[in-house]
Design a protein around this nucleic acid. Structure first.
Lengths: 215, 215
DNA sequence: GGCCTTCCTGACCGTATGGTCAAATTCAGA
DNA sequence: TCTGAATTTGACCATACGGTCAGGAAGGCC
């Protein structure tokens, strides 16, 4: 084992291909940006986590902003993926239930990414404002249409679809963004499988009953 | 005794009293920390916002960390205040309903503070970890007792109290922390009085019905 | 091997930042 | 008015940061 150990899996060959190197750096960057925020993160620290010299980072990502932008974009893609579940459902109980499941899974598996996104939005979305105005707006309006259809079909109560969506985002992402607070209140340990299941179940129970989609 | 303080925004007299100066600086710091995060905020920018020379900040707050800590503590106090409403209620519909109202009011009036708190927790609570482990833990356990009593009295469904609290925090704080995203989806304008009322009403409707505290 | 492209990296640079300090200013009370 | 403590401030400093660059190493292809 001549290779130095790093937090992120490191490639074995001396010379990396673009995609490998970029993925390695993006992964390290996501972690560091999540832990320290954009301003608090340093290229040196990202380099250390990736197990590469700092200058090598600048070879693949010329500036810190560019690296950060790619990290945020990666999250946003994953985030949007959960949308498919919503559309393919035949009713609110199935659609919203599955959406909660999917978003909770993302909160668990991609907590760092969720934090980066939250941080970005909290600071006024300086980097991804255009995404909010285009992709996210379109996505939201599409889902509002679906919910309104469900309401007009009498499959759920008359709820403001927009605020329902905010509620879904808030409750699910909370488990990623405020994971540290939740862990602390859990005695310092991360939620185990059973507790995650309880969290999902609770959210689904309350919201689905709350919107009158279950009886 | 009689303070001749007139304007909170800017100092009028050449020499300030400690409390005035500290309040002015804390207010500016809260704004800047919320917008830029701890790492992104600079003492120079806080000084500019406060309308004071940078060296003057260091006279009242020796280090950036100390200033930040005070800002976070201030938020936490406001945050805990909303707890009183919870205890004085005679049932879940009144108690949780009023708590949602109170927390939504905080999200609207102290959005910057909420963001600072969120940022702090998201980055692992390096500064206020002790608060999470003591005050917040105690507060949470106390509220869990109240909710469990309501459940045992048959006044609401059997819901995990802990996850219900997380849900209340998540949904209400979302309107502060993700306010920029919400504003963008609102056509770029902040929510007006009517929209805030709709948001509050929606949350209360869904959650109270969801936990079986209303019929 | 010879050559070219891609990749790697230590050393370096200008700038911005948190923090210091000593001299100046203000003000309450004697 | 005088005195001493509290406050204000411009100038200054050491450090750390993002970014650059020149030269070296690795590997594919003939």
């Amino acid at each position: 084992m001549a290779e130095t150990s790093t937090a992120v899996t490191k490639a074995t060959s001396k010379k990396m291909r673009r995609k490998e190197a970029e993925a390695l750096i993006l992964s390290a960057a996501e972690k560091v940006f999540a832990e320290a925020g954009f301003g608090g993160a340093t290229m040196q620290l990202i380099a250390d986590v990736a197990g590469l010299p700092k200058a090598n980072l600048h070879y693949y990502f010329p500036t810190k902003e560019l690296l950060y932008r790619q990290v945020v974009q990666k999250i946003f893609q994953i985030w949007l993926q959960a949308a498919d579940i919503f559309d393919q459902a035949e009713g609110p109980e199935e659609g919203i239930g599955a959406y909660i499941d999917a978003k909770m899974e993302i909160s668990r598996r991609h907590a760092d990414g969720s934090k980066v996104w939250a941080s970005e939005v909290m600071h006024g979305a300086p980097v991804i404002q255009d995404y909010l105005e285009t992709t996210l707006t379109d996505w939201t309006n599409g889902r509002i249409d679906v919910i309104e259809r469900w309401i007009s079909e009498g499959r759920m109560a008359q709820i403001d679809p927009r605020h329902l969506l905010y509620m879904l985002w808030a409750t699910t992402q909370h488990y990623a963004d405020f994971g540290h607070q939740i862990d602390t209140l859990n005695g310092g340990a991360p939620l185990d499988d059973k507790q995650w299941e309880a969290a999902k179940s609770n959210i689904k129970t309350i919201i689905l009953r709350g919107i009158g989609a279950t009886e």
